[in-house]
Structures are given as structure tokens and as C-alpha cells.
């Protein structure tokens, strides 16, 4: 186990369910479940702040205590609250450090592209994550790609990305990662003024609805 692998202290949960999970969160702990490799699922909890620190550093591999021994685990899934701010639950999958795993890693485009100096040019990044296959102990934090030479109309595909040794992209080579496009100038109609006059405009009513509904009021 490498020294850079973050370690999380866990406490086993005896009582599971919404109510107990909520109480744990109120105490500053995050409910987690650890599973995989033939082990029975273990319900545990970790310190929320500690966990937040691990996730914010783009860690994929963590070391947790399962049945009294330090076990490497893959951060499989993290659920967040409705504001997408605080984690509410996490899934950890036990892995062998020598086995191949597929994970989503962040994709960061660095440098100022030449093409962006053109008026109206915009970098359209279609992929912000990349699925990669690599050894569990060799997961890159992030894939970086320099786009300094990218000009207007130019594009980057998955095949153009420089992968670290031992890491292979799972996505197809032809998949578009980013491109620089120049936005066409569109005249902005003065929609707010048009609102008043178009207020009476109504959408078409599909036949399944009451055909006579609009006329029904006039009968009165």
C-alpha cells in the first residue's frame, strides 16, 4: 500500500436505516457501506470532514479497516444532498491492488488555446471525465491535456489524450473531448416587449383533451 493512499477510520454500524443514518450525520459522521470480493457487506461510518477532504483531493483509492485489517477500497459512489453540497452516503468496493479496475477520472484541459483569441470563439468541452482502465494502485488523480496549440475549428479526441503509463482509456478513440467553435451572431429579439402582445397566444390542444373546453365558457 502506497504511503499516499489516504486512510479512513471507520466505526461499524449496528443499526441501519434512514433514522439511524440521519442521527449519524447529525453527529458529523457519514454512513458508508463496504462490499466486494466475496465479503458480506459491512455497514460502517466515517468522519464526514475527513471523508470530504479525501474526496475533494480526487482520491479514488482509500484504506479502511474491515474486520480489523487495513483494506484498500475503491470509492465507488458518493451520494450528495439535494443541494449537491454535503455527502450523505458512500459506497466503497474492496479491491486487490494488482487487479485492473475501470474508473472515471477527471479530465482537465490546461493552457490558453490560440483559437480562443478570436472574437466569439468558445471552448466547448464535451467530456469532463474519462473512463480509464488501470491497476488499482495506479489510478491517476486527473488526466491533463495541454490545448495551447488548439485553433478555431480544431478538436481533441480521446485518441489525442496522452495517457500515463499503465493507464488506458475505455472510451472510443473517436469520441470528441473538446473543440473550439465560433458562435454565430444572432440578433436578440426584444422578447419582453413581445410578451404583452403575444400573451393571448395559446398552445395547440391535442385532440385527446376536451375539444369544446374553450368554447364551453362562451356558452355561459
Amino acid at each position: 500500500m502506497s504511503q499516499t493512499t489516504p486512510r479512513l477510520e471507520t466505526q461499524k454500524r449496528d443499526k441501519i436505516g434512514t433514522r439511524y443514518a440521519r442521527r449519524l450525520r447529525d453527529e458529523g459522521r457519514l454512513p458508508i457501506v463496504i462490499y466486494g470480493h466475496g465479503h458480506d457487506p459491512v455497514h460502517a461510518s466515517v468522519d464526514t470532514r475527513e471523508f470530504h477532504g479525501v474526496v475533494s483531493h480526487h482520491a479514488h483509492l482509500v484504506e479502511v479497516m474491515v474486520d480489523g485489517q487495513a483494506t484498500p477500497c475503491l470509492l465507488k459512489d458518493v451520494q450528495y444532498d439535494y443541494l449537491d453540497r454535503d455527502p450523505v452516503h458512500a459506497d466503497l468496493a474492496i479491491v486487490n491492488l494488482d487487479e485492473d479496475v475501470e474508473v472515471e477520472v477527471g479530465l482537465e484541459l490546461t493552457g490558453d488555446a490560440v483559437g480562443l483569441k478570436t472574437s466569439g470563439a468558445m471552448l466547448d468541452q464535451l467530456m469532463t471525465t474519462l473512463a480509464v482502465r488501470c491497476k488499482a494502485n495506479n489510478i491517476p488523480e486527473m488526466i491533463e491535456h495541454d490545448i495551447s496549440a488548439l485553433d478555431v475549428g480544431g478538436s481533441i479526441h480521446v485518441s489525442d489524450l496522452a495517457m500515463p503509463t499503465g493507464v488506458a482509456a475505455v472510451d472510443e478513440d473517436e469520441k470528441l473531448v473538446a473543440h473550439i467553435a465560433v458562435q454565430a451572431e444572432k440578433p436578440e429579439p426584444d422578447e419582453l416587449d413581445a410578451d404583452a402582445e403575444a400573451a393571448s397566444d395559446e398552445p395547440e390542444v391535442i385532440d385527446k383533451g376536451k375539444k369544446e373546453e374553450g368554447e364551453g365558457d362562451e356558452k355561459e
Binding site: Y82, D84, A194, A198, V205, G209, G214
Partner: peptide
């Protein structure tokens, strides 16, 4: 032209209730 659907099944709707938090459309 204000934003509105092009076609609808019924012209009028009841007010409905709006409880809870967003579970969809809450991520960038």
C-alpha cells in the same frame, strides 16, 4: 413570444402541491 409548450393535452391545470427538494436537475 413567451416560453410555453407548443402543444398541450389540456388547456388548464389545477394548482397542485410543491413539496420536498429537487432530486433531479440539481447538478451542474
Amino acid at each position: 413570444m413567451p416560453l410555453m409548450p407548443k402543444r398541450v393535452k389540456f388547456r388548464k391545470q389545477q394548482r397542485g402541491t410543491n413539496k420536498g427538494n429537487a432530486t433531479r436537475g440539481n447538478k451542474v
